[in-house]
Design a binder for these strands. Structure first.
Length: 295
DNA sequence: TTCCAGGGGTAGA
DNA sequence: TCTACCCATGGA
């Protein structure tokens, strides 16, 4: 089946997908040749389907889905993944007024590819901490391969596992298959908390939760610290926190001519106020950033 | 063998 | 609040 979605004005699938490295993490796959974002998705009825999203024109997005699924759910999934419901007008107006940021609206920057669920993004953020991109990709691929539901037409490809699919096995089995090192504990705890009903992560995506409240909640999750919380806030449409990573430290150190602390990196971006997180993500000197080193 | 990668948890000050 | 130390994994 095919569904058509009208994106907001100025939307670019290419730029959204290239905002960071998520396109390299299963079950996402980006085809540079075709300009399509592919994904294996498990819908609520248990259907596992292949989705392929493309932007045939500035004003249209098309999702081709391998089987018939509930249209509303498919549309909601695409809208969530591409952050179609996040308004960027104010951010772009802010950037236009500053010479060093003028390229951001010109290049249609501001949206980032994310997963349909906060659960999946949280696990992926945990998988990025204190490791290389190659290992992050391997860890996420193993999660899908060993615990995600297979695509019927191509059983070698899998959806991202639901929390219950991880909670269904012992911690020992999970660790042996996922090989996420000390992160095994974080991911398994998260999965079991959600599966047992003690934690409803998806309810945290509500628009009415203030940034500070959401940040505190995210920091309470196992394996999520200031960096991870800032990433997840950005994916949730909260732009006011900088996800200080090794790349941010490198770049700000270069600017200042000496090693800097995380606090100094934060200070560097304070001038951008409520938009500082988005500004860092799309800062012009970040074009050579880790989002592309994994290509 | 040693170091370290898109950090986080913990103890102690 | 800040610092030091440790943490599994696997590639360089």
């Amino acid at each position: 089946m095919e569904i058509e979605i009208q994106p907001p004005a100025g939307f670019s699938l290419y730029e959204t997908v290239h905002a960071h490295g998520w396109r390299h993490l299963h079950p996402f796959a980006w085809s540079e040749e075709h300009g399509t974002l592919d994904r294996i998705e498990c819908f609520s009825g248990g259907q596992v389907v292949g989705m392929s999203i493309e932007q045939p024109s500035e004003h249209a997005l098309r999702a081709s889905i391998s089987e018939r699924v509930q249209e509303e759910e498919a549309i909601a999934s695409v809208r969530a993944m591409l952050q179609l419901d996040i308004a960027l007008d104010d951010f772009h107006a802010f950037c236009t007024g500053r010479a060093e940021l003028a390229r951001i609206p010109e290049q249609k920057h501001g949206r980032m590819l994310r997963s349909p669920t906060l659960w999946e993004d949280t696990v992926k953020v945990i998988a990025t901490s204190n490791t290389t991109w190659a290992q992050t990709r391997s860890m996420v691929a193993r999660l899908c391969e060993h615990f995600g539901s297979p695509l019927v037409s191509d059983p070698m490809r899998h959806a991202f596992p639901a929390p219950r699919q991880i909670a269904a096995v012992s911690f020992e089995e999970f660790g042996a298959k996922a090989r996420m090192g000390y992160r095994n504990d974080y991911v398994y705890k998260l999965a079991t908390s959600i599966a047992e009903g003690g934690l409803d992560l998806e309810s945290w995506k509500s628009d009415v939760i203030p940034s500070d409240v959401l940040r505190k909640r995210l920091l309470s999750l196992p394996g999520i610290g200031p960096y991870g919380a800032a990433c997840l806030l950005l994916y949730s449409g909260h732009a006011g926190h900088v996800n200080v990573d090794s790349w941010a430290r490198t770049l700000v150190s270069r600017e200042m001519g000496r090693p800097v602390t995380d606090k100094e990196v934060q200070s560097f971006f304070e001038q951008y106020g409520e938009w500082r997180g988005l500004v860092y993500t799309f800062y012009p000197w970040r074009q050579e950033s880790a989002g592309d080193t994994a290509s």
